[in-house]
Amino acid sequence: MLFGKNYFEIFDVAQTYDVDQKGLLKHYLGLQRKFHPDRYIASSEAEKRMNMQWVAEINLAFETLSNDLQRSIYLLKLNGHELEENPTLDKGILLKQIELREDLEEIKRDSNYELALTGFKKETEKDLESLKSHLKAAFSIGDSEAIKNLIYEQQFLTKLIGEIELFDQNPMEID
């Protein structure tokens, strides 16, 4: 924690999972207007260096809080917990993940993949969205085990969407 402020404090928003994104953006842009290095062109080198550290911190804080996955990991950490490197997942969740992965592989093999891929992406995005309300609930009661399991799911689905997009952009290069 640089400058003695956590990311929520930097933007003066409540330290909850369902952070007010509009307020976040507004405060982020307000801070940029004040502190962007362009406003410090005439300052001393020492102040420029300091300023750059601070603005980089503002940027990182904004990126973290405006991203659903990064925000949950960060908030978990603020609550004093960390994710495990190789977690043991619930069997049901594990099976569902294997299934989803197989579904994607099948779509990829189809020469007319486009429609199915779009549908699959929409479904995945819906699943990801619904995790948010579960996370909000788990964070509000402070159930760290539940939070962790939800984040593992969130990680998986986020990665899956990344793969969908990658394939959509370069269908040839993947195979």
């Binding site: 400058f3 402020k5 404090e9 930097i10 003066d12 307000g30 801070l31 004040k34 502190f35 001393s44 020492a46 102040e47 260096r49 300091m50 300023n51 601070w54």
Partner: peptide, 14 residues
């Protein structure tokens, strides 16, 4: 001094 000023500006802005 630069660090102190930066801190002050940040607190003021917040």
């Amino acid at each position: 001094f630069a660090a102190l000023r930066m801190d002050m500006a940040i607190n003021k802005a917040l």
